[in-house]
Design a binder for these strands. Sequence first.
RNA 1: GGCGCCAUAACCAAGCGGUAAGGUAGAGGUCUGCAAAACCUUCAUUCUCCGGUUCAAAUCCGGAUGGCGCCUCCA
Length: 460
Amino acid sequence: MKVYNTLTKKKEQLVPIDDKTVRMYSCGPTVYSYAHIGNMKAFLFMDFLKRSLNYLGYKVKNVMNITDVGHLVSDADEGEDKMIKTAKSTNKTPWEIAAMYTDAFLADIKKLNIQRPNVLCKASEHIEEMLEMVYKLYDEGYAYETSDGIYFDIAKFPQYGRLSNLDLEGQLAGARVAVNEEKRHPADFALWKKAPKEHIMQWDSRWGMGYPGWHIECSAMSRKYLGDQFDIHTGGVDHIPIHHENEIAQSDAFLKKQAVKYWMHCEFLQVDGGKMSKSMGTAYLLSDLEEKGYEPLAFRYMCLNAHYGKKLNFTWDGIEAAQKSLNRLSNLVLEHKESDTHIDSNVIEEYKQQFREALQDDLNLPLAMSTVWNAARNNVKSKSIYNLLMDFDKVLALDLDKKRTEAADDIPEEVTLLAEQRLEARKNKDWKKSDQLRDRIRQLGYSINDTPAGQVIKKG
RNA sequence: GGCGCCAUAACCAAGCGGUAAGGUAGAGGUCUGCAAAACCUUCAUUCUCCGGUUCAAAUCCGGAUGGCGCCUCCA
C-alpha cells in the first residue's frame, strides 16, 4: 500500500517497522462537549485506514487517546469555555463531564461502525508516563523552567518546523507578540504547567502541583502502547502546524530518533462551501442528522465518496443523496443475494483487483466505490457478486445486506389505523378516499408505498 | 503579513501525460388505479481563463482570475 506522508510530502510505500503488524496512533477527541460530524470525519478516516490495511492483509494495532485534561481549567480567565459553562450549569466535576462526553463519543462511533481502537487511553490516567518524558527532556536540557511551567526549547531541536514547512524566521516577523515574556521563542511550548490553586485537575511533580501540557499526552501514550517507534500517526490537518510539530519535537528529542514513520492527515469537512462553525450553527452532530431521518451510516457513505486528503463539502442535499445511494446499494446487494445466476469468476476477480488497487493507492475510496457500483449494477444477478460486495463491506462497513426499505417499527397507532382504512378503500377501488388517506398519512410525517407485498409505511 | 489547499456537468466527486470513474438530480422506460419506491436506459467532443512544452495535456510549466483553510488547546 502507498500512503501520502505529510512529513516527506510524498506518496510512499508503506513498509511496517515490524513487518508483521502496522502500529498506528490517532488523535482522539477532547471530551468537553459533543463531537460534531467534522470530528467524525477524522475518526472515519482512521477506521477506513485500519480496515483497508486489514483487508490488504496487514495486521494492525491501533491506539487512540481521549483527552480529558488540559482544557479543564476551573476559572474562566480565558473567556468563555464551554467546559466550564457546562460544569457550572450542571454542577458537575470535570471528571463527570469527561465521562459523559466520552460515553457520547463511544456511542457515536459505534453508530458509524467505527471499530473501537485496540487501545483507547485517557490522558488523565497516564500522568506518570508524561512526567517521565518531561523529566528527561528537562534534565537533558531540552526544556527550561519559567514561573508558570516547563517549556520545550525549540532551539534545541533544529528540525522543528519540518512537518508544516514552517519558516521560523519568517514566522517570527509577522508573529503576534508573545503572551508569555519568559518564553525564549514564541513557538516554545509547555510540557508541564504549574497549577494555580483553582485548577481542578492537578498532580504532583518535581515542580509542585501541576498538569500536563497539551501535546505530551500523545507522545507518552503512543510510546507506552506502540513502542518507541511506530508506523502511522493520523489526525486532522489542523494539527499539523502545532500539535504534531510539537509531538515530533518532544518525542524525537526524548528518543534521539524518529518516533513516527508516516504522518497521515485528513482534511476538513466544510459546510455549504465554508468553515464549519459553532457560532453559525453548522457544527452539526450525528444526532442532528438522525433527527432529520438520516442514518449515521449515510454520513459514513458520504465520507467514503471523497478522498480523505481533500475537503469534503457537507450540504443537506449531499446527505440526502448519500442516504438514497446507500438505500439503493443495499437493495442491489439483496437482489444479488437472492439470485444465483452463474457469473464468470474472472469478472469477479477483475472487480476485486480494481477494489484492491484503489485501496492501495493512498486509500482511494471514491475510486473503490465506483467499482462497488459497477459490480452492484451488473446485469447478472449472482450470489457471487453478493459475496464479493459483502467482502468489500469489510472495509466500507455500510451494513450492505441490511434491508433499508423495511417498514419503520415505531409507527404511531393513528397512522396504522389510517393505513388500514386506506387498504380497505383500495380493495373497494375507492381511489379518491385512498388518496385522501395517503395525504393525511403524509401530513403526519409518514410515507406509504404500495409494493407487491402490500403497503409499506416509512417515516419521513 | 506567513503557510497551504482547491478550481472537472445542476450538485457531490474520481482521474494527475494517451483521449472524461461513480453517486445524486434531470430525461425516457418497465411496474402501478394513480403515485411512491424499485429496477433498466440515457445524461461533459470537454475539465475557470490565457499562454507555453509535447505526436498527444483536465493532467506538466508560466501567468491571470476565483474559492477555501490554517497561523486561537477546533478533526
